[in-house]
């Protein structure tokens, strides 16, 4: 079962094990420059608000109601990362955007696959920031209007049909459960300074591949048969243009995202995460061939990303899985 609590999706499998609980939230973050350089991980800048689509049935597209699930607001060209804050119980988690698998680039299927691995193992995998384009490298999730041609879905299928994010979670079989460590990635929490929303805009958003970031998707060290594929929970996460959020929900949308310059001026750190004992998956050739938002914008004669100047990351915090005494894990902000 999945509940929505304080803008967090809580996946629970009480019939599998009392510890089988996992939380997923969606973090606002800096859109890193889309300049073909690769960057460390930016910090989380607070959670996106999450709402049941059913609560706004009169004001969202019928297909959102058909899909069920939840919705969140994003500005055009805003970035997000997915935070998996599990306890210690392991889960296989499959994530797609526009029903394109974020690890393999394949079309959505509910089931788990191993060759190539099309899912992540939580809590070994603490976060996902984008599409896995090669080993150790992702392209950041960047929101663009569905239909504008930038999303991975549109580049791969030629259709602007699904948008949003799709997540399915499978628990480990309980007889194999041994508690494992988890990781957190900090950042300052900005209190909302609400803006007045503009007129309603076309609001269905997809996630396009943005700038390159160093992030590994880790190999599953379990056997495929270790996952309980008879017990899964899945959620469709619709992305509503922030400019339409007030019209849909009567709530103010979040503040506009920070620019790279503001990020630097606030002294917000960057992060590098190392899991020395883990191997990374190879990444997807299909996803690797996608054009980033900036590349595609240039071809179209469009400027889809404001404030896209290159920056030099400062204050990089090293995060290491299984820290030994004295190692730094988080910065002080």
């Amino acid at each position: 079962m999945i509940e929505l609590k304080r803008d967090v999706l809580v996946f629970r499998f009480p019939k599998v094990h009392e510890d089988a609980k996992m939380r997923v939230d969606f973090q606002r973050t800096l859109r890193i420059p889309d300049d073909d350089k690769d960057y460390p991980l930016p910090a989380g800048l607070g959670r996106f608000p999450l709402r049941h689509v059913d609560d706004f049935a009169q004001r969202v597209p019928q297909k959102w109601i058909d899909h069920g699930g939840i919705m969140l607001p994003m500005y055009q060209s805003e970035a997000l990362w997915i935070n998996f804050s599990a306890g210690q119980y392991p889960f296989a988690v499959k994530v797609a955007a526009g029903k394109i698998n974020a690890v393999t680039g394949d079309s959505w299927t509910d089931e788990l696959h191993r060759e190539p691995q099309d899912y992540m193992v939580v809590p070994h995998q603490p976060w996902l920031d984008g599409y896995c384009i090669e080993k150790g490298l992702i392209r950041q999730f960047v929101a663009m209007p569905l239909g504008s041609g930038y999303s991975a879905e549109e580049q791969i299928t030629g259709e602007a049909e699904h948008g949003g994010l799709q997540i399915v979670v499978y628990p480990l079989k309980p007889e194999l459960y041994r508690p494992v460590a988890r990781m957190t990635r900090g950042g300052p929490m900005f209190e909302a300074e609400f803006l007045c929303a503009a007129a309603p805009a076309a609001f269905d958003m997809g996630l396009a591949p943005g700038g390159k970031m160093r992030q590994e998707i880790y190999d599953d060290t379990y056997e495929l048969s270790d996952w309980n594929q008879e017990r899964s929970s899945r959620c469709f996460v619709h992305i509503c243009n922030s400019l339409a959020w007030r019209a849909v929900t009567q709530e103010a949308p979040p503040t506009t995202p920070l620019t790279a310059r503001e990020y630097k001026n606030y002294g917000i750190p960057w992060f590098e995460y190392y899991a020395d004992d883990a191997k990374a998956v190879q990444g997807s050739k299909l996803l690797g061939k996608l054009k980033s938002v900036a590349q595609l914008g240039k071809e179209k004669g469009d400027v889809p990303l404001p404030d896209n100047e290159s920056i030099q990351p400062e204050k990089i915090v090293q995060l290491r899985k299984g820290l030994s005494k004295g190692q730094v894990r988080e910065g002080t902000f």
């Binding site: 509940e3 069920g68 469709f236």
Partner: peptide, 13 residues
């Protein structure tokens, strides 16, 4: 009690 807890509804994808 858990029967009255609101779950996130899954639909047809």
């Amino acid at each position: 009690v858990s029967r009255v807890v609101r779950e996130v509804r899954d639909g047809k994808w």
